[in-house]
Amino acid sequence: MLSLPFMQNAFLASTFIAIISGIVGVFVIARNMSFLTHTLSEIGFAGAAFGIFAGWPPLNGMLLFTMVSSVIVGQLSVKAARREASISAISSLFIGLGILFLSLANKTSSYATNILFGSIIGISRANVIQVIVLSAVVLLVLLFIYRDLKFDSFDHIGARVKGLWTNILSIIFLVLLALSVSVAAQIVGSLLIFVLLTLPAASSRYFAHTVSGMMVVAIGMSLVGVWGGLYLGYITNWPVTFFIASIECLFYIVALGYNHWRQG
């Protein structure tokens, strides 16, 4: 299986995607941004469709749309009372735009399917390098702001009192999230970003109780999901995304069960 170049590319890209998703996901869960992450992925769909329309690689279109809109989306969802309505409005608009761009580009529905649900066959060596470079950028920035971001994410009140630059931190994190969404969408597709960017981190908090511990568990769960998904997809010829989603959901159900047992 690993002698096939496209599988090598898929394994390599998915390994980096799993690592980034595990780390960023812990902050996504702590900052209660799962829904916003989903919106960014829908914006990513519109971006990828725009890329196809403009004759660019879809990832570039995705990066452009998610990064430009991430801060706007973050600002619109600051007020809890209108967060869900604002996010729903943005999601609808961008899904509509995505369909429009695909239609204008005269592409078939298989393009939309690939963007929405991911396609491992389409990952080239150039894509892998792009994923690795983007992952390295996310990791480096995270390393630099790690302590402050950790404080703000896990104790926002304490961080504000300390005088940390919480607004700037929030903007930096949104941009990092936009990058991560675009990267993760390469494997699971934009519609199932949840699977890697939120589920492993959400499960990890029941098994580990330090930030670094949660990251290790989330990365482990993501790696098992993507590697297992690629393997099962290869031997069954079923969609890889289906297996990744099933594995991560299984982890989440086990985590909830473990928590219930521990508290009971």
Partner: peptide
């Protein structure tokens, strides 16, 4: 008050150490 519910995951020790910020080493 702090918005920490019963599922707040960090240990007491990790929570206490959050205030040690301002340094870039993780």
């Amino acid at each position: 008050f702090r918005n920490l519910d019963e599922e707040y995951p960090l240990t007491v020790r990790d929570f206490v150490s959050l205030n040690l910020s301002g340094i870039h080493l993780p």
